[in-house]
Design a binder for these strands. Structure first.
Lengths: 190, 190, 190, 190
DNA sequence: AATGAATGAGGTTTCATTCAT
DNA sequence: TATGAATGAAACCTCATTCAT
């Protein structure tokens, strides 16, 4: 019946525990998760939470950064050094990777990118920047049409994101991915 | 000595007053509007609100339906009767209309389509259905490529919506619309 | 075991109930009383409290106003109409009344006038104003020395207040009041 | 790899560092200063604070004692040895000194003598004792009226304190001090 | 003696919803 | 139909104090 002994950790370790607890819950229950839930899951006191995250939104921001970094690490953009790049193929594979990554993180994406939080703390989305960079590079290589990189990247990312959303909510994965690939290829084809 | 009984209205008239009050406020202040605010603006008692809308989300749903209907009415799809249809032009003009319509309704769109409400009460979005219908009809007329109508419509709508969002948050209207037109034309071109 | 039925009152009546509950508790337990305690004592929900007092300090302010008004009503300053005024006697009796009044309200005075609240929400104290008025009137009647009314009133009120404090915390009432009377008389004597 | 152990100091030296840090902060920010702030200012760990002061109130008590001692040292009461004493002048100069001393310590006085702390930990105030002693001595020298020393001292101190308060909060220093001198002189005059 | 991560009870406040009138 | 006083769970956040290291 006694309470578990107080565990003293390195700040980074403790912060990580909280973050991971939050990820588990967000994945399972979406954006209705509260501070209360996270501290219970992490096995820490409420005060501990606010020691590391002054506000709830600060936690979400940390999660967002982690998610972005995680994707960038898992699916890095190739460098020319490794050989000539198949630009259309790169776009296709990255898009596909994004969909699958989102799928594996379900609720988190919703809570971070399609909730009120996203409105409160907007972010020059990393995905958009990546696409813009790829478009520019591909254009220099003569592999893409001279579309306006920035706005086009933004629109394409929206399409990719929607594809992920659609698959996540039970759509026909093959059909959606096919439509997405067509859209990407045709939009960028020289 | 009690205050004069509130005038009795036709239920529909009363409901409309509330709805319009909500529209005004949502447009001005986005998703942070509360029941309290709406009833004050509408000049009705709090209880009256819940007489017409069992929950807050029911009001939002009503607003969403109205918004959709309003757009459909303002920008109806042409019928063949009126003459031959310029399919690419139709898509372009509808997309442009959507962006402008969204712009004129600012906060409402956010509150209805990009908030937690949208997650709680998803909707087979009307905009998607319209695009799908146009794609199908255009394909029959030989004006569009044989893309898969439903998933493609969904992705295209996401792009259109993002364009609206981008313009609303201060993006370069001309550049964004141009990129959108390019994306639409290329994706559907035969 | 059932909860007591919801009682619907006129706003003023309900507000009064809360105020009186607060007075009872403040009198008994001083400035450590909390919103939680007041609502329990008043038999209302927490939300009801904030319906009438946006913040805790607003309640204290209401209590302060009531206390001041109560004293003014209980011990009104005489008007010349009622006959010639015994100025030194008036000062003496008002001072004495103040001490007794404070005594009968114990903890309330502490919580309102000697706590952090008093620092947060200072008030041109009513007691000071009364004394200043009496000094001026008495001077015109030739009954008091030509002391500077405003600062003197402030100092005299501090003395009166301290006397009340002293008696309340167990001092020798007779001795303290005698010393107070001497101080007042000598300070104002022509 | 741990950080170098904190230098060990003589306990009294360490305690003094904390006390002085607290004085600086209290002077600047009044009673809203927190333990957190003090330890940061003192450059010690939170636990260290509670090593020297079991509770926050214990620190305040220490500060209070220091403040009192400081005043006594800065403005010592003269002994007869030094020559005949000008009793009314002594009272006047001490009162004036007190006001100026308080003024130079602003926030500290508020936090120690006019806050909830003062209620929680009352103190037979030193200032009162000094005045009482002066009254008694002056009476023996035939320079003061036969007022009751203890209660009178208490009331006079309240007046002096209020004068300090009044000046500190922006009152007319000259007028207030004049009124105070008059009050003191008249109350004690034989 | 010293640290600073951890605690958790306690605080104020919000607001969709209920219900006596 | 209409009212608006009342509800109360739940939210976020604070901070003096504890204790493993």
């Amino acid at each position: 019946m006694g309470k578990p002994a107080r565990r003293r950790l390195q700040p980074e370790a403790r912060k990580l525990e909280i973050v991971q607890a939050a990820e588990r819950l967000l994945q399972a229950h979406g954006s209705q998760v509260r501070v209360e839930d996270v501290v219970r899951e992490a096995g820490v006191a409420k005060g501990t939470f606010f020691l590391y995250f002054p506000t709830w939104d600060d936690l979400l921001e940390t999660l967002r950064d982690r998610l972005v970094t995680e994707f960038d690490t898992a699916y890095p953009l190739p460098t020319e050094v490794e050989g000539p790049i198949d630009w259309p193929g790169l776009v296709a594979s990255q898009a596909c990777a994004f969909v699958d990554f989102t799928l594996s993180r379900r609720g988190i994406g919703e809570a971070l990118f399609h909730s009120d939080f996203a409105e409160r703390r907007p972010l020059a989305h990393n995905g958009v920047l990546r696409i813009a960079a790829v478009i520019r590079a591909g254009q220099e290589a003569g592999a893409f049409a001279p579309v306006d990189p920035d706005p086009t990247a933004r629109l394409l990312f929206a399409a990719v994101d929607e594809a992920a959303h659609a698959v996540a909510s039970g759509g026909d994965r093959a059909a959606i991915l096919a439509a997405l690939q067509t859209l990407l290829r045709r939009t960028l084809a020289p």
